[in-house]
Design a protein around this nucleic acid. Structure first.
Lengths: 337, 337
DNA sequence: ATTCGCTGTCGAAGCGCTTCGACAGCCTAT
DNA sequence: ATAGGCTGTCGAAGCGCTTCGACAGCGAAT
């Protein structure tokens, strides 16, 4: 393994000079710099990460905590993870993958050991156990999601409240009076994941304003669960003509079931989904949807952290405005309803 | 930040003693050990990762390289990543997430800098550019996937050759004579990803043995692409009664299209999928499928690496035997065919 | 009683890097 | 001609840990 000292010797300069060439923290003459860079290339030198971390108290690693469970939004998670990893590399950082399993202990471990310089947390609950720790450490962090109180925290998320409202507005404008919300799995509500509740709140309050009736039903993904949920919905509100689907793994089953029951989309029933665009366009009916901007959130999280680590930037909460794209799954409410 | 020295002072022992308590590499009297452990707890000590890595040349980190592209098997990737992270933690390792984007450079960077002690590579191509580097470094690695030559490498993968054969056998036994294979996206074949080709080979050679005709068509995921592909298939081989689907994002579209065309599954047409069990049971028809053992592969990869880092274990290629689960999407070939 | 071999603990060196203060040499302003 | 200010380079200290050799103390074997 090639060391700094060997590079220095090869280039005929001192170790500190090589270090300054690498970091750019002091000015170096062009000739010296080139000589050093040449030596680095010839010897195939890579700085030792541990030594660097020890001396500088900087690991150049960002920790990403993803939920262990796979009961929701797998593609979204993946997209965020990839955006985080890619953006981090652009700024010279690597990404450490933590699962939610360890919970608060993972936060303690990472901040205590200097494993990472900063953290990104996903799957944030309203009263998340990890928050107190984040508030008291001076390590920067970004939440992807929105807890009950955001004081002293930085968060990014889609504005799910506005998203819910937007879906309602769209359906209301088309003349629908009775809509059903196919929500996330019950477990998601039970652990008070912010986004699911906020969607519902936004949706209900706008519905009240525009005089629209809303029936909300949590739903596991998959065909069988959706079949049961759908039956209940039509049982309770036979006049339902609009659907808002938040659980993306319920989208395709819903479409299939409606088709099977002879209800045409969008002639008889309209469907709005909250899902990544890719899912919306690959579905069997091109879905009117509000996109989940996974990449944007991942990128933002990293860039905010990098800014903070560079001494720029401050705490803030960024709610991304939802955009609804009209595709082929929504249309005017049928006359008779 | 609490240091080893502070713990030592608090416990009234030397720093090295604390270190030995932590590592267990020398025997320590019970009383001393307890005193030290008490101090560690009281002070909330966490060893500094950089210092530890520097002194021991061990980072306790395993690098996981996942493909950047999301054109295939997102849930499988995610499942593997989570299994890797979870298993790694069990053995005291953390996971560094690398994207395929950097290619061979990532391998160089990681081995050169001592960032990680070992690597797991996914999305392996037959003649992967990263392989020469892996062969020449002494850092242990595991490939999830199978390249053209495995000498000097450790690999785990589902036995896709046997998987293809198994699918054919199942359909043959049910009396099907003409089957179609809905493959991965063309790009997957173009970059010579091993598993896709091996599936096809296994499938074709068994088909030859049992006298079955096979038509293979690559297919992007999604409804539109599947519609085009399906039309071509029936155009060319109207007598097709069996399908093997490798691209999991084509499964649901295929089922929907068949239904739409009035072809009943499994009465008129049988479908076998190669996909995670979760996908198979959540589909609109419970699918007869060969499972992709994502968790098992992830776990195996980590455990093999840990063994190697502990000086146990050796190079080997593990091909997991496929298991076909019969569900509701396959049945006897229709009489007239 | 002396030697031998344990067990448990300590001190010190060193891992490879960053960074601070020092300073040589040169140019500009007086 | 001299002082002052730059620019570019160097040496040394130190980051927090692991690990090696040394050795004190003790019981067992001679």
């Amino acid at each position: 393994m090639v060391t700094l000292a060997e590079v220095a010797q090869h280039a005929g300069v001192s170790a500190s000079t090589v270090s300054y060439v690498l970091s750019g923290k002091r000015s170096i003459s062009t000739t010296t710099r080139q000589r050093v860079e040449q030596s680095i290339r010839e010897l195939g030198y890579h700085p030792n990460a541990g030594a660097r971390a020890l001396a500088s108290s900087r690991s150049n690693i960002i920790a990403l905590m993803i939920p262990l469970r796979t009961d929701m939004y797998v593609p979204v998670m993946m997209e965020i993870a990839i955006a985080v990893a890619t953006t981090a590399r652009l700024h010279g950082y690597d990404v450490l993958l933590l699962t939610g399993e360890e919970g608060p202990d993972a936060v303690r471990r990472v901040t205590g050991s200097g494993l990472a310089d900063a953290m990104i947390l996903m799957d944030v609950e309203l009263e998340d156990e990890r928050l107190p720790l984040l508030r008291q450490t001076d390590q920067p962090s970004v939440l992807i999601g929105l807890p009950a109180s955001t004081s002293g925290l930085t968060c990014v998320d889609l504005d799910f409240g506005a998203t819910g409202a937007l879906c309602v507005e769209h359906l209301a404008k088309l003349g629908h009076r009775d809509i059903a919300v196919v929500g996330e799995a019950p477990a998601v509500y039970e652990r008070h994941t912010g986004f699911a509740e906020r969607t519902l709140d936004g949706l209900r309050s706008r519905a009240r304003e525009v005089g629209l009736r809303v029936l909300h039903r949590p739903c596991e993904g998959g065909y069988d669960a959706m079949a049961v949920t759908l039956a209940r919905i039509f049982d309770e509100r036979p006049g339902t003509t609009g659907f808002v689907v938040q659980n993306e793994s319920a989208v395709e089953p819903l479409l299939a079931l409606l088709r099977q029951q002879g209800r045409a989309v969008p002639e008889d029933v309209s469907v709005v989904a909250i899902c990544p665009d890719q899912v919306a366009v690959q579905a069997s009916v091109r879905l009117t949807s509000v996109a989940i901007p996974a990449q944007e959130m991942g990128r933002y999280a990293v860039e905010h952290l990098v800014a903070k680590l560079d001494g720029r930037g401050s705490d803030e909460v960024v709610l991304i405005a939802p955009e609804l794209t009209v595709r082929a799954s929504t249309g005017p409410a049928p006359a008779g309803s």
